[in-house]
Structure formats: C-alpha cells, structure tokens
Nucleic acid binder design. Structure first.
Length: 640
DNA sequence: ACATTATAAATA
DNA sequence: ATTTATAATGTG
C-alpha cells in the first residue's frame, strides 16, 4: 500500500549551543550534532567545545532535541567540564541577566564558567549539620525565618542584625536550617581585600565549604565550582557566588547588602542583590539579606511587608550602642572643643582613640620624600593634586594640568611620596597637639606598604579616612571621632543620606557598646539630619522611614528603577539622542544629558527613571545590538 | 600581475 | 572573538 521511502533521513540528537563569545553578532544559539560517544554527557547546561568559524571555542548547551537537521551540522568536539555549569533552572537566571543588563547572551553565559583548569568530578560530600539555632531566635520573627527556610519555596527576608553581631555564626545557623531540610546554600559576602570573617566562620563549621571568593586560587575555585555542581551543600564567595552552580538550592544569603561591591562594573553589569532575588524566585529558594544597615531597597521591601523582616528588639539595639554625642563642626579648626576634651581624657586614661577624616575624592598631594615640600602649581603657586591613575598633576584653583616633575625643584631628590593630604596633615597636627601619644595613620598607602602590617595594636590615636577603616583592621578603641559628617551627608548623590547613615553606623559599631565605655562623637553642621539622629537613637527604622519618604518624593529607587546611559565624546550626541528617544517611547523619564569628566575624557550621560527597567532594557536591546563597535556606548542598568 | 592591507561578513 | 572572503591600495 504505502511506498517505502528508501532514503528517509534518520533522526539524530541535536544540541543548541550558545558560543562563549562576547559579541552582539553571536547573540543566538547554533545547532550541533551530538556524537554517540558523548550522548550521556551532553546535557542542557553542559560546557562543551565546538567548531566555530574555523576554530574551536567553548559554548554552553541550551537545548536538546531529536530530529532531522535542516542543514548539514558540525559535531560537538567534547565536553569540557565534568558537570553541567548551567542546568535548568540556572540557565533561566543567565538569560535573565543577559536581558536585564543588556549583555550578549554569550557574555552572560560566561559567568557560569569556572576558571580554566582541569578538574575531576567529585561525589557530593555528606552534609554536615550546622550549629543549632540560637542567635537567630533572639530576633523578632527569627522563628518565622527558620520556618520559611525549613518549608522551602521562594521568599525574601531582611535580617537587620544587631550592632556587634557575629554575622558568620548567625548565617551558619540559617545555612544549617537549609541543609537540615536537604537543601543547599550559597552565601555572598562583600568582596574585600582583607578577607571575610563571615567566610572564615562558615569554613570553621563546614570544612568542605566551597570557597569561591577571589582570594582563593583559581584551581581551588574550579574545584569548588565542580563540587557545587555535583551537589556540595554550601558555597561562599563574592558577588559571583549568586550565580555559582547549586543542586536543590534552598537558601541564598547576601551579607551586608548595602556594600558597593555587589555591583559588577564590567559587562554584564549585574547587581548581585537583584540576581539573588531572581534566582531565588526561579529556583524556589529563600533569599536573605543580612546586615546592620540594609540598603533602602531591602529595607523598604521589609517595611511594606514584601517578604519577612527579622529585627532586634529596641532594647537590644539600645544596649549595644555607644554613647553618641553630636557637636557643631568648628569652621576654624578640625577638632571642636568638645572632641578635643574627650580625646585628652581618653589618652590620659590610657585608652585609644580613632579620628576619621573624609577623603577628598581620589586626589592626593605630591610630596618630596627628602625635604617634605609639596609640589606647587607653576601658574598660581597653589598646591596641586596628584592623579595617580592618569599620572598627572592638576591645580584645583587655575585648572593647570601637567606631568609631575622628575625631581624635587627645591632639593633635587628624585623620590616622591603620594599621600592623602587630609589625613597626613591631620596626623601631624594631632601628633604635635599630644606629643606624648603614639599617633598612627591608617590609610591604604600605609597599610599596603611593603613593611607589612603596621603595628596597629601599639598606638594611642589612629587617624584614618573612611576607606582606611576595613572592619578586619580595626583595633579596639573607646572613642571614635567623626570630624566631618557633612562631607558624607552633602555629597551630590541621591544615596548620600543612605551612605552617611551606613558609614556612621560602622563607626558606631567600632566605638562599641556604652557598657564597655564606647563613645562616638560626630561633628556636623546638620545635627538634625535623619542619618545622624538614627545613629543617636540606634534606630534603623527611624532612618528608613524618613529616607523612603524622600526617595518617593523624588521618584528614586525603590520607587523607580534606574538606567544610566553614557557615550564617549560629544560627537556621539545623536547616538545618545536616539537611545533617549527609545527610552521615552518605553515610558521612561530621562534626566540629562550631563557632561561628566572621567579619566581625561568627557562623557555625556543620561539617567532614565523607569517603572520597570526590564521593559526599557528590552526596548533598547535591538538598538544597542545594532550599534557599530566604534561607538563607545555604556548602558548601566541598576547603577550604584 | 601580484603582494599587502583595510573592511565587511560569517561563524552550525 | 576570530577567521575568511572581498575590496582597496600599493609595488615593481
């Protein structure tokens, strides 16, 4: 009856692969034949090597199908990594990152790829139980949080940790709850140079902790990656930890979510906090933000009941705070009479003091190491600032700019010192005021000096800048003096209030509880500012409610989502205008353009306020993809 | 006529 | 990103 088709082509297995090539031209998948010998290893999410444009590149499998190819296909050469790096539902997170942050898919998939080293697959280690819950139960709603972790499913929580809390131990309790329920855990910590106490605490509980932070060597990171992909119970690292592989993910923890390092500054410019929420939603995991000063975005969600909020009792928060004094900042001196008296008292009693001077931008003065004279502007004799990255000197008064001289014009010495002018001068001044006190400057320059760690335990007065105050390096002090809180409060940025509050809260924590003699003195011209008052009251909610109101009035996050677009020179003005038109078409409100000086070049910049950045990003995508590679356009979704 | 270099197009 | 075909420019 039916004629037999003698040459019916047989069905074969076809894999769709996204090549790991960061180009808009390759923002799509390519089909390959799966050879019989690789049939069991080529799964969705597998990292493979494929022939591509006359060479071999790596790629990630996004789809598998049985069928008849519409054209002749090349074959997958081999599987590169012993475990899939982006199995579903992980691949959906990567696709989401490519979409939201306007990156070619190949670049987004690159995030899922471990360091380039050969590793062996490993059987999942048997899960070790965590510490029993104790600290978390001291918080309001702490029991509900444990229930949420135990029962599984997507949820978001804000854990507003009390000042002085051992967050490593607290997070270990949460992780223990997830592991006890048969799930796995990823913990992200701020990426900082001097290590993370939270990771050390976790490693103490779980020797098999998969360490992904940048301080662990590449080969070990690749090992951690494969262990997680094979089902290891817990991994921890910097912002990249939120895209690490995990099987049966139940809990994602973001430690100190206000920290700026959660924003990736290279493409794809993702915000790890936002990615964590999306991954939690997709994977059905609880997303927990832990910190003493949660960002306004996280705090606002907790405030309006979008997710849970575990917080310390008011009594506990007050018990942990230092005595806080707010004084008028003197205009003629650096130390007010009140602060001067406190320092004198403490030093007399053999206690220790920390004084904080604000750092002025990234500019430093240039000093001769021999005669200690600073380089002056040849045009107007004012002191010049030295820009280390551009290796140029600039005069703030007349705008003179030039190459720094080879040798000192006064004594001919060839050795220069590049020193933060503010803290250097302050340290000299403090030392001459209290000649018998040992004064130590704790700037990054001093800490990174080849002499190793300075003797931080053997000084009476520490003089430092905001950036020099990494928690890991803080010696015990009984008095912290903030010389100029206004430099924080008055910065020209809608997050200045938030940043000021967070910085002051850190200083409050450094001072320690009043019961141990801790005292914080803040010099400011705005003693009634809510960032300052919230520190006095040790009341995060006090700050949050006022800051949220301001954000709402100005329609800034969390009431809008931001996209920042910048183009290189003013000759790109029409490119920018076209993109702005697209944003407006997508119902974004556009501020600017403004001109921004960055590293010698002048950029044009606009800021888009969007109801949903995702839809505006989707509208922009084809236009960005079609731009010639010569046009230097940077789109930053969720800028910081 | 043929080598060298810039440019665009394709990559399964 | 890299290769490859194609056009453009240069050289004896």
């Amino acid at each position: 009856l039916q004629p037999t088709h003698a040459e019916e082509p047989p069905e074969i297995r076809i894999a769709s692969v996204i090549p790991l090539i960061p180009a808009w031209r390759i923002d799509k998948t390519f089909d390959y034949v799966v050879p019989e010998r690789l049939a069991s290893d080529v799964v969705v999410g597998a990292l493979v090597r494929i022939p591509f444009g006359g060479r071999r590149v790596r790629g990630v499998v996004t789809e598998l199908a049985e069928g008849v190819p519409g054209r002749e296909l090349a074959a997958i050469a081999k599987v590169v990594f012993p475990a899939p790096v982006a199995p579903p539902p992980q691949n959906r997170v990567l696709e989401w990152i490519a979409e939201r942050y306007l990156a070619p898919r190949g670049r987004a998939y690159q995030l899922a790829v471990p360091p380039r080293v050969r590793v062996q697959p490993s059987p999942p280690p048997s899960p070790v139980a965590g510490p029993p819950p104790e600290r978390v139960l001291a918080y309001e709603n702490g029991d509900d949080l444990l229930d949420a972790i135990a029962s599984g499913g997507a949820a978001r929580w804000c854990v507003q940790s009390v000042q002085g809390e051992d967050r490593g131990a607290l997070i270990a309790e949460l992780a223990g709850a997830a592991i006890a329920a048969g799930g796995t855990v990823l913990v992200a910590v701020p990426e900082v140079r001097y290590g993370s106490t939270v990771i050390e605490r976790l490693a103490a509980h779980w020797p098999q902790l998969a360490r992904l932070d940048s301080s662990t060597p590449g080969i070990e990171r690749a090992g951690a990656w494969v262990r997680l992909a094979c089902g290891a119970p817990i991994g921890a690292g910097g912002r990249a930890a939120v895209i690490a592989p995990a099987l049966n993910l139940r809990l994602i923890v973001i430690d100190e979510d206000h920290h700026p390092t959660y924003k990736e500054e290279r493409s794809p410019r993702y915000d790890a906090r936002r990615v964590a929420l999306e991954r939690g939603r997709i994977a059905g995991a609880v997303c927990v933000f832990v910190g003493a000063t949660p960002s306004v975005e996280v705090g606002h969600a907790a405030l309006i009941g979008d997710g849970g909020w575990a917080r310390p009792s008011r009594a506990l928060a007050r018990e942990r705070r230092p005595i806080v004094e707010v004084v008028e900042a003197p205009s003629d001196r650096t130390l007010s009479h009140e602060l001067h008296e406190r320092v004198r008292e403490v030093v007399k009693q053999g206690g220790r003091v920390a004084l904080l001077a604000p750092r002025r931008g990234f500019s430093r003065a240039l000093w001769c190491a021999a005669c200690r004279r600073s380089v002056r502007c040849p045009a107007c004799e004012a002191g010049v600032f030295f820009d280390r990255t551009a290796h140029r000197v600039r005069c703030p008064r007349c705008g003179y700019e030039g190459v720094p001289p080879d040798r000192c014009p006064d004594c001919g010495a060839i050795q220069w010192r590049y020193i933060g002018a503010g803290s250097e001068r302050l340290a000299d001044q403090i030392a001459s005021t209290w000649p018998r006190a040992r004064v130590l400057r704790m700037d990054p320059e001093v800490l990174d000096g080849r002499a190793g760690k300075p003797d931080i335990e053997n000084a009476d007065i520490y003089v430092t800048t905001w950036v020099g105050t990494k928690p890991a390096l803080r010696p015990d002090v009984s008095l912290v003096g903030v010389l100029d809180a206004d430099a924080l409060i008055r910065r020209p940025d809608f997050r200045s209030g938030e940043r000021a509050f967070q910085a002051l809260a850190e200083m409050s924590e450094w001072a320690g509880p009043a019961s141990d003699g801790g005292r914080l003195m803040i010099q400011t011209a705005e003693p009634r500012h809510h960032a300052v008052q919230a520190i006095v009251r040790a009341d995060y909610r006090f700050f949050l409610e006022r800051e949220v109101k301001l954000r709402q009035e100005l329609d800034y996050p969390p009431f809008s989502e931001l996209i920042k677009i910048s183009v290189h020179g003013s000759d790109q003005r029409d490119t920018l205008d076209r993109l702005v038109a697209v944003c407006r078409e997508a119902n974004a409100r556009v501020l600017g353009p403004i001109t921004v000086r960055g590293r010698g070049e002048i950029n044009l910049q606009v800021l888009c306020k969007c109801r949903d950045a995702g839809t505006v990003a989707a509208a922009l995508r084809p236009h960005i993809a079609a731009l010639p590679s010569s046009s230097r356009v940077a789109v930053d979704v969720d800028p910081r």
